[in-house]
């Protein structure tokens, strides 16, 4: 079965994943951390603590459905069993496996996984987090145009103290059409269609690094009212912990068995790595101002590396 390296894990998958992630040494595979295998998926989890329309979460087991695409049963922090809906393409489901599937695997292992675009510059990684549509990918793209590389666009696993390594995810990004118009170098990137939100899926393979980097800082993008100004505030540790919880990928799937472990890791991260909140007023074009502020913060973080980001 083909092996891949993604999110800091070796994954054995019978469903094809992006070729760039494939392990180059086909003879000496490390033992896979995760198995992704087609098979039977249960209708319900009898021990579910959390039940929503498209997912159920129980200790060490999550059942998730991507409407009209397929279902996956994620168990024990090491196995994803999936079933494709009739007529659906495997490539469409790969994004779900590499996003939600791998994020939940990490959560079941008690690891930190954030929803954000990750980039690196001069040996340090930076994350841009925030709710969908707030401009994470666009800000990251502007910063990357000024130099640097990407580690991924959506899901980022942060390793434990003291290194707090940011691990690379799949080499792609999603950009809204208006953002794409303002980013000249992105218009030439290979396009892989549209995602359900209407954004264009682009390959960022030519500016991707597959090497984990120590985390230098996190920028949380947040909406503000239209009449308010763009602001940048360094979060106090308590606020930073709350922001890390808020920006945890699939936070609604966190069950009681892993909650304290994750909380302790967020606490350690919040005390070691600078976390900034930049507010973006709704309804006004403040992109240039936000890019300028973010660039200044990144430069500042590089001059004063975080405890976990010592080069």
């Amino acid at each position: 079965m083909p092996h891949y390296r993604v999110h800091g894990m070796t994954v054995a998958s019978d469903l094809p994943l992006p070729p760039l992630l494939a392990e180059s040494d086909l003879t000496e595979h490390a033992a896979a951390d995760v198995q992704i295998i087609a098979g039977d998926v249960p209708e319900h989890l009898p021990t579910a603590e959390i039940t929503r329309e498209h997912y159920q979460a129980a200790p060490a087991a999550v059942l998730m459905r991507a409407p009209d695409v397929g279902q996956m049963h994620i168990t024990g922090g090491n196995r994803i069993t999936y079933r494709l809906d009739a007529g659906e393409r495997a490539t469409d489901f790969a994004a779900h496996l590499l996003g939600s599937g791998c994020a939940i695997i990490h959560q079941q292992r008690g690891n930190v996984v954030l929803h954000g675009a990750s980039l690196c510059r001069d040996g340090l990684a930076f994350l841009v987090c925030g709710v969908s549509g707030v401009g994470k990918s666009t800000l990251a793209a502007h910063v990357l145009e000024a130099g640097g590389q990407t580690l991924g666009d959506d899901v980022c696993h942060i390793g434990d103290a003291p290194g707090f390594l940011a691990h690379p995810g799949p080499p792609s990004t999603k950009l809204a059409s208006d953002a794409l118009q303002t980013l000249a170098s992105y218009r030439g990137l290979p396009q892989h269609g549209l995602c359900p939100s209407g954004k264009t899926i682009l390959s960022t393979a030519d500016r991707f690094t597959a090497t984990p980097h120590p985390l230098g800082g996190i920028i949380m993008l947040d909406w503000a009212f239209e009449h308010e100004a763009v602001t940048a505030t360094r979060l106090a540790p308590g606020e930073a912990i709350a922001a890390l919880r808020e920006n945890t990928f699939r936070k609604r799937c966190i069950t009681s068995d892993i909650a304290q472990t994750l909380f302790s890791k967020w606490s350690a991260l919040a005390q070691s790595v600078p976390i900034w909140r930049i507010t973006r007023p709704e309804g006004r074009d403040t992109q240039a101002e936000i890019v300028e502020i973010a660039s200044g913060l990144l430069a500042q973080m590089q001059r004063q590396p975080a405890l976990g980001g010592m080069k």
């Binding site: 540790p237 912990i241 909380f263 302790s264 606490s267 350690a268 005390q271």
Partner: peptide, 8 residues
Amino acid sequence: SDAGELKV
């Protein structure tokens, strides 16, 4: 939280 001086 149980990390360092911070209690949250």
